[in-house]
Design a protein around this nucleic acid. Structure first.
Lengths: 194, 194
DNA sequence: TAAGTTACTTACCGATTGGTAAGTGATCCG
DNA sequence: CGGATCACTTACCAATCGGTAAGTAACTTA
């Protein structure tokens, strides 16, 4: 009874993985359907077009990212930011599905006129930053700029990890990753605390 | 006489723009051909398949990026790095075509088994970093990790610029950009000089 | 001037694309 | 028991995909 079947959710999960791997244009409805073991009309039954399916995938992503911020609890805003980013950096590199999805959405955002669902996520992080001693007297734009450096470095490394690992070998890549993880920890702390 | 027509180069230029905008799967041979005002068979005449066309686009990108490093002259390796990254940060945000191409290539690199042509570029930058006072006693992996933070932040902002501008409005975006440009300058200097 | 070569075009091809229309069998509800 | 809804399927469709084959007009070279 705990496990609802809910086919729509299952199709969304499979579509999320595929869109993350192959991008909007690289995924066909037939592929998602094949993953689910149904015909593509089963998928089309819930999401009336590929565009809508993709939009729903991005909406769920936005909800998930926001929820991860909210799930992070700590006494002060600065500590919350530190805890959140440390957790995100770890999961983004280990499981880059969401990071890839965000980056693909960024790349495709002006090519296709679609609304940008991740604004609330960025806004929440900015709000949190502005509550820290380091940023409390800064403008929103300055705080966002600071955040973007951090997010950019993490996301870029996350999407590069497979390529880097293949390019330099696993042992060498592991050293780069551990060096970067240390760097991230310092930069994250430096971001939240003056 | 200074302007060679060389159709292959022209098709490559057009294909570069399109692959940067839409990604490998988003571009059809017919689209590139339409841009050039020819039939798709004219494009296939030079590049025997879409895969080869895309590979050639990435090869030219790799050559171009390497040439930009080599074109940067300064008395010391540290100053060369600073000059190069400052120049790259400016052009990447103003003209994100190459940045988008690199990021798309990263995202697609494991989905399709293709060789990674940008290794020489990363290696050249790492070599340069290892010649600076800051990194001369560090390992290659530590230097690469440091580089990657910098490159990641710049590239991620470059590909986000249109989305951010649309999301927050032009004036607010300009403030973010100027704050980030200042940050980049400091981080770049901090990277090259201890 | 004849033979290539270059830079294409027209004419196809089978496969796949996103999407519509019309069912079908199972389950729920009154 | 009967109608409605759900979760699909089969059957199609026009358009587009990457790619092959064969030709053609213009230019270059021996």
């Amino acid at each position: 009874m705990s496990t609802k079947p809910d086919p729509a959710e299952r199709y969304l999960d499979l579509a999320t993985t595929r869109f993350s791997e192959l991008g909007f244009h690289g995924v066909s409805l037939a592929l998602v359907a094949k993953d689910a073991g149904v015909t593509k009309q089963a998928v089309l039954h819930y999401f009336r077009s590929k565009e809508r399916l993709y939009a729903e995938v991005l909406n769920r992503l936005a909800v998930r990212l926001l929820a991860e911020i909210d799930a992070t609890t700590a006494p002060t805003p600065a500590q919350r930011l530190i805890a959140y980013f440390n957790a995100y950096a770890a999961t983004a590199v280990a499981t880059p599905e969401d990071a890839r999805l965000v980056v693909r959405a960024l790349l495709d955002s002006d090519a296709q006129a679609r609304s940008w669902p991740l604004k609330p996520y960025l806004d929440r992080l900015t709000d949190l930053a502005l509550q820290t001693p380091r940023w409390q007297s800064a403008t929103r734009e300055e705080a966002l700029a600071g955040l973007y450096q951090l997010i950019g470095a993490i996301q870029y490394f996350a999407i590069s990890a497979p390529t880097l690992s293949g390019m330099y070998g696993k042992t060498s890549f592991d050293e780069v990753q551990s060096a970067l993880t240390d760097d991230f920890r310092k930069v994250i702390e430096g971001f939240a605390v003056p």
